Simulated assay, not measured.
Amino acid sequence: VLFHRVANTLNYLDIKTVIVSCGTCMDQLQKYEFEKIFPGCRLLDIHEYLMEKDMRLQAVTGTRYMYHDPCHTPMKTYKPLEVTSALMGQDVALNDRCCGESGTFAVARPDISTQVKMRKQEELEKGLQQMGLTVGAPEMEVKILTSCPSCLQGLSRYGEDTGIEADYIVVEMAKHILGENWMQEYVHKANNGGIEKVLL
């Protein structure tokens, strides 16, 4: 019902693409037969959209990246690792295995989640070793990037043991392109007329 109301309210706009930033949201919108509500409109992950617009980091030095592909990946149009490497402007290594801590998994099944978490930590440590870096105290900054807000929470819990910082791909890009204060500046602009408000 809500999407039909949005479609009716915004029918004066020629909406071609709806951008999402969460795999679960993407899956649900696809199940809602989104194309029937917004005919001719496509669903696209924000990272895929940025790649299509040729947004990418240039010459980032001093940081190595790994990519964690979420169980519920939002990237459905292009290969996630290729998207990540294109956006980062460098080859990014895939770091396999579920993080074991996102969503309600860790709460609902802590017995299984703990085992999954241990396997993911082993995989992260292996990734560091393949880069020739010391586990727990890497000689340079290493980040594990993901395209899932929930996985980001889970991946953040490995930092103390591995020395790897977790971040969302688009946030890492924003920090480099727009500066460290990008979020505060965005919120300020949004609150001061930067977003069209629609009453449903």
Rank of each mutant, 00 (worst) to 15 (best):
residue 157 R to A: 11
residue 77 T to K: 14
residue 82 E to Y: 09
residue 194 G to N: 08
residue 39 P to K: 07
residue 159 G to L: 01
residue 12 Y to D: 12
residue 86 A to K: 12
residue 147 S to W: 01
residue 185 E to M: 11
residue 113 S to F: 02
residue 139 E to Q: 15
residue 100 G to I: 02
residue 36 K to T: 14
residue 39 P to N: 10
residue 23 G to I: 05
residue 9 T to V: 10
residue 95 N to P: 00
residue 183 M to D: 10
residue 11 N to Y: 06
residue 112 I to G: 10
residue 185 E to F: 08
residue 15 I to H: 04
residue 68 H to V: 00
residue 8 N to P: 00
residue 101 E to G: 15
residue 121 Q to L: 09
residue 23 G to M: 03
residue 95 N to R: 05
residue 144 I to H: 05
residue 200 L to Q: 04
residue 120 K to N: 08
residue 17 T to V: 15
residue 152 L to D: 01
residue 173 M to S: 05
residue 96 D to N: 07
residue 117 K to P: 00
residue 55 M to C: 13
residue 56 R to E: 10
residue 20 V to C: 04
residue 163 G to N: 06
residue 9 T to E: 06
residue 62 G to M: 09
residue 138 P to M: 08
residue 165 E to W: 02
residue 123 E to G: 03
residue 18 V to P: 00
residue 15 I to W: 02
residue 7 A to E: 04
residue 26 M to F: 05
residue 118 M to N: 14
residue 119 R to W: 03
residue 2 L to N: 10
residue 78 Y to F: 14
residue 67 Y to V: 05
residue 169 I to Q: 09
residue 83 V to R: 02
residue 195 I to F: 01
residue 188 H to L: 13
residue 162 T to V: 09
residue 169 I to S: 04
residue 105 F to W: 02
residue 97 R to N: 11
residue 11 N to P: 01
residue 61 T to A: 15
residue 75 M to S: 12
residue 163 G to K: 02
residue 55 M to R: 11
residue 91 D to L: 11
residue 8 N to H: 15
residue 67 Y to L: 11
residue 109 R to D: 10
residue 9 T to F: 00
residue 17 T to R: 13
residue 61 T to D: 11
residue 190 A to C: 08
residue 96 D to G: 12
residue 43 L to Q: 07
residue 101 E to P: 00
residue 99 C to I: 04
residue 55 M to V: 15
residue 54 D to K: 15
residue 108 A to Q: 11
residue 86 A to Y: 15
residue 159 G to M: 07
residue 14 D to A: 12
residue 182 W to C: 11
residue 178 L to H: 11
residue 126 K to M: 10
residue 200 L to Y: 12
residue 6 V to S: 00
residue 114 T to M: 09
residue 163 G to Q: 02
residue 90 Q to M: 13
residue 156 S to H: 05
residue 125 E to D: 12
residue 38 F to A: 01
residue 125 E to M: 08
residue 105 F to N: 04
residue 90 Q to C: 15
residue 149 P to E: 04
residue 112 I to W: 05
residue 153 Q to K: 12
residue 88 M to V: 11
residue 105 F to H: 08
residue 4 H to E: 14
residue 106 A to T: 05
residue 53 K to W: 03
residue 62 G to E: 10
residue 37 I to Q: 02
residue 8 N to C: 06
residue 184 Q to L: 11
residue 40 G to E: 05
residue 151 C to V: 12
residue 121 Q to K: 15
residue 71 C to V: 14
residue 189 K to C: 09
residue 25 C to N: 04
residue 196 E to D: 14
residue 96 D to T: 13
residue 109 R to K: 13
residue 200 L to E: 06
residue 28 Q to W: 11
residue 149 P to F: 04
residue 22 C to M: 03
residue 101 E to T: 07
residue 76 K to T: 15
